[in-house]
Design a protein around this nucleic acid. Structure first.
Lengths: 155, 155
DNA sequence: GAGAATGTGGGAAAAAGTGGGGGATTTATG
DNA sequence: CATAAATCCCCCACTTTTTCCCACATTCTC
């Protein structure tokens, strides 16, 4: 099963709607029928997570659910584990693809990413990452020098 | 069965009523008929629990009952177990959805969470968590640096 | 270049959220 | 026990948001 690969830039309209590129949507289509839905009712849910670095991460249900299984093991009464759970769910949201292949991002999510007009969507295999274009540009140029050292350490 | 996911902010009116977001209410609807009620009389009960961290936890009956099964195993005559039972039930309350999809929170519950005007409701899979907005904000910013370490330790 | 697929925007209808009036029931009080 | 006071619900009305749908422009494919 291939992941999301590639980078595209699209506009976010006044209603906060962001188009998911067609090539990414095709990947969804191939694995919707987990629960034997009728062709009509296949609603494509997408999880949205506010990442620490100021981007938004988009997950398919099957991928997010895998992460969530880890969360379910955590105790409500261990302070550290409870805090982690809170930190995660407070940053998480859920949305659906409309018939034009867009998702509606909440004002809060857009603010977190600093998105007003345009957004870059980067395929990162299991997830998609959404950036405000200038912010991404700055991150890349600010850290251009770190690529080689990091790469040589880890790959 | 998908859980509660997402974060919303709503106002609590002067009567102490808090709206349960429509998308969360829809999950209730899909599993009301446990006891074979007539369509008319399906009253949606919600359990409210005062959490240690200053939030309120909202549970569906089916989920709370599962937790309660653990409690029923505890002995009334073992001091520790008896104390635990007391501590839990002393923090627990019960309320119902009215026809507008709201629940009435008692003064005591509101005070525990420090809620006066607004409240944030966070979907946390099996339960919903209610926060006073500023209190949540403070928790999140105070612990922003702890997310990465905790996440890497537990997930 | 024609037709299909993709991307963008917006209008209208429906749903959700908010606040408050008023009747019924419960609780307090003389 | 009667009456007053308070509380609790149910319903209505208004505002805002979301959803659904369509139209059009652009790009891609053959």
């Amino acid at each position: 099963m291939p992941g999301f690969i590639g980078r595209e830039q699209h506009s976010v309209d006044e209603k906060g709607r962001l188009l998911i590129p067609a090539r990414f949507r095709r990947r969804f289509a191939s694995q919707t029928n987990e629960s034997g839905d009728s062709p009509q009712s296949r609603v494509q849910v997408i999880y949205v997570f506010k990442a620490d670095d100021g981007s938004l991460e988009l997950y398919e249900p099957s991928v997010w659910n895998q992460k969530e299984e880890q969360l379910l093991k955590l105790s409500d009464f261990n302070p550290d584990e409870r805090l982690l759970t809170t930190l995660i769910y407070a940053r998480l949201d859920q949305t659906e693809l409309d018939r034009s292949g867009r998702i509606a991002l909440s004002r809060e999510m857009l603010d977190h990413a600093g998105i007003t007009k345009d957004a870059v969507i980067i395929g990162a295999n299991a997830k998609m990452v959404v950036w405000e274009p200038l912010r991404l540009e700055r991150l890349l140029s600010d850290n251009a020098g770190r690529f080689a050292p990091l790469a040589s350490r880890y790959i």
